[in-house]
Amino acid sequence: MESGLTAGFERLLATDQRIEPRDWMPEAYRATLIRQIAQHAHSEIIGMQPEGNWIGRAPSLRRKAILIAKVQDEAGHGLYLYSACETLGVQRADLLDLLHSGQQKYSSIFNYPTLSWADIGAIGWLVDGAAITNQVALCHCSYGPYARAMVRICKEESFHQRQGFDLLSTLAHGTPAQRAMAQDAVDRWWWPSLMMFGPPDDASPHSAQSMAWRIKRHSNDELRQKFVDIVVPQAAAAGLTLPDPELRWNEERGHYDIGAIDWAEFWHVVNGAGPCNRQRMERRTRAHEEGRWVREAAVAHAAKHGERSGAGQASRAGAAA
């Protein structure tokens, strides 16, 4: 029985078809997806904090409106991903508990502080740029709900990256002080952005299995290279430099070479000792606790008024079909 199920699953993968929620799947495939999608969802939600930090201090109404829209998108991306994760048989409240207790992680990039307004540009251009490179690949991953969430997210991320580039480029062509602020932000965000693709291929223990399951379609190093090749000319167009003296075009490979990434720093931050790890978690758990009365009030209201209006609504929709 089990071997027949496995064969069916393998056949779907081999013909590049999608696995859907009610299909049989190996428990390890399910567990890997839950871990990955939950971490991705948590990253979107925690990612609201470094940018939300600047909403009240945006330099113009236009920039403020853009930043609010972007932060709202991040909340939406988190919700798409939590929904995708729940199709695997987990509950959202449990996923949030795992985040709050530190048993599930979020992307380390959000443990760096946003020190200046230019950081908002650097996040949009570099951090979201790196995220898009990863996420475009995930649009073709083998699990249907995850791939569909990624398609929606990628459409929206494009605005995020462009507004970031526009913001940084505007500063880079401004006063000397603005220019210096833009360059400083790029200097601080460049290396952490490259780390977002994860450890090098020879030190990435789960990669081979994820590739075999077609959850991952490209290796960490391939995606990192792709991102570097895209971003280097963009930096030149914005009049900004990237903080890597070894960065140069390699004619033979047809790619840019980069210097060595400081993986000790990466693991340091992953393991909880980054500049903002504690602050991010404190703020997340506080927001969750402080919202408790709202969740309870909504349930009480639904219990009091719900059934009547709920039923009426359903029959009207049915009649309209």
Binding site: D73, G76, L79, Y80, E86, A149, A298, H301, A302, S309
Partner: peptide
Amino acid sequence: AGSVHAPDAQMALRNARDLYTRR
């Protein structure tokens, strides 16, 4: 389009509007 959690139908509609029709 997807799914939302909500305590009742009216909140589900509002959450769905905010989540799936921002553009």
